[in-house]
Nucleic acid binder design. Structure first.
Length: 444
DNA sequence: ACTGACCGACAACCAGCGGACCCA
DNA sequence: TGGGTCAAGTTCTTGTCGGTCAG
């Protein structure tokens, strides 16, 4: 008789198992057969299929009777159904503001098993905790932000989950990964490896990763089983929107500096005969810069060129006219550099939020933005994800990366349906005849 | 309880023509 | 003359996060 037990992130199989069970390897050091915990469900399936007798001591979980007052919207129900059809495993891609939390809650209700929700930020930790507390008539545990309390329903940050997954891996039947794209990170992916939870769901607005790590996520959590785009929901559940690209020129002085730095960079590429086609080529260059001073110089020059184009003076001028035109609107301004945030903040007297902004000040600014005292906020990358930002209807992207993810998240900031049914508007300021045009193209 | 300093993790980071050399 | 290899001791910088610890 085989016996399965959970042991710090692995499933241990005792009783002389066949050597070809999925994921199972013989570990010389401990003289035992083990599989990584995330293959637990697969392992059980294989044993069943072959009719092998086994005793399952991996997790003995209580069954919870949960219910929710939420009524799922049509697309939310469809997403849940798709996930259930896929064997309670898989990822769902839905736009920011489409109610991903509600789907997570519905999944918990459907399975009625202890569940761990993993989130990237403290802000999200608190949001989930509040929701779950309100919805379910039982204690909600929390790991993160200075508290480590585990209950049958627990919300955790990725960091805390990473630290404790090996010890808690047998306590949950369902794992909910919010903003699941984070799970592709080198360290975070271990969380999903160490958990035995047979049921898993990943929620995100942007499943695919430029580094290809979504394939690892698909392996650990399950493949993408449902995709709902912004345009599917715009006009009904989300606001209609327009995107305006505005090209500005560099000043002659900026142009000189840009060409000089960009030249240094391209000269180096030419000289050393490097092909830059993909991210990995770029990584190659970064690697090289570790011991090749010329490569390092080239990278620094590229950085400076980027700074010049991202912080171009005429973008600031242009922002002035946009702010003028939208006097009555609620506006969020995004930049890539902290310096520029403070410059804009001083010039236009707009409250600024960067990573340097303390917790209390940040709370105060967002609170005043919410109640209407402030109608504008300027920020670097802080508000991209994982923060509950009050609604706005106009976003101005002064400078952004080529990242599709960043773009989607920023757009999501203005898409909550408007009370007056008005359209949301996103301005994208791009410097002409620079690499930024390419970058802007890449993100859509 | 809150704050600031520290640490580590994560993500984005993407040219526009076209060498030099050795060896089989 | 054509084809393979340059090249090594393992990684730029900036922005942001969470966890930890001291005060």
């Amino acid at each position: 008789m085989l016996e399965l037990t959970y042991e710090s992130g692995t499933i241990r199989v005792t009783g002389d198992p066949p050597s070809d069970l999925p994921g199972v390897e013989y570990d010389e050091r401990t003289q035992s057969a083990r599989a990584p915990a995330f293959r637990y469900a697969e392992l059980v399936d294989a044993l069943e299929e072959r009719g092998l007798a086994y005793e399952d001591r991996v997790c003995s979980l209580p069954s919870l009777s949960l219910s929710t007052a939420y009524d799922l919207r049509e697309y939310q129900q469809a997403a849940l159904d798709a996930w259930r059809d896929a064997g309670d495993r898989g990822c769902l891609e839905l736009p920011t503001g489409s109610g991903k939390t509600v789907i997570g809650i519905a999944a918990m209700v459907a399975l009625g098993t202890p569940a761990l929700v993993v989130v990237p930020t403290i802000d999200l930790l608190e949001q989930w905790q509040r929701e779950l507390q309100r919805e379910f008539d039982q204690p909600v545990g929390r790991m993160g932000g200075g508290e480590q309390r585990v209950e049958d329903i627990t919300v955790s940050t990725y960091d805390s989950a990473y630290l404790r997954a090996d010890e808690l891996g047998d306590r949950f039947g369902l794992a909910v990964f919010d903003e699941v794209h984070h799970l592709g990170g080198e360290g975070y992916r271990d969380i999903a490896r160490l958990l035995a939870a047979p049921a898993r769901v990943g929620l995100t607005a942007t499943f695919e990763r430029p580094d290809g790590a979504h394939e690892i996520i698909a392996d650990l959590v399950g493949p993408l089983v449902q995709r709902v785009s912004v345009d599917d929901l715009a006009g009904e559940h989300l606001a209609d929107y327009d995107i305006k690209r505005i090209e500005v020129a560099l000043t002659p002085d900026e142009r000189d500096r840009y060409e000089e730095h960009q030249g240094t960079f391209t000269d180096y590429l030419k000289q050393s005969n490097i092909q830059l086609r993909s991210g990995s080529d770029y990584q190659e260059l970064v690697k090289r810069s570790g011991n090749d001073p010329a490569a390092r110089e080239a990278l620094l020059a590229k950085q400076r060129a980027r700074e010049v184009m991202m912080n171009a003076q005429r973008k600031v001028d242009r922002l002035a006219t946009i702010l003028d035109r939208h006097r009555g609107d609620r506006i969020i301004v995004f930049t890539a550099h902290t310096d520029l945030v403070y410059r804009l903040s001083e010039r236009f007297l707009i409250p600024a939020i960067t990573h340097e902004t303390g917790a209390s000040e940040r709370r105060e600014i967002l609170e005043r933005f919410r109640d209407g005292t402030y109608s504008r906020v300027v920020t670097a990358n802080v508000l991209d994800e994982g923060v509950d930002v009050p609604d706005a209807n106009v976003a101005v992207v002064l400078s952004g990366s080529g990242s599709e993810r960043e773009f989607t998240q920023r757009l999501g900031r203005i898409l909550r349906p408007k009370a007056d049914g008005g359209r949301a508007l996103l301005y994208e300021l791009v410097t002409e005849e620079t690499a930024e045009e390419r970058v802007a193209r890449r993100r859509r």
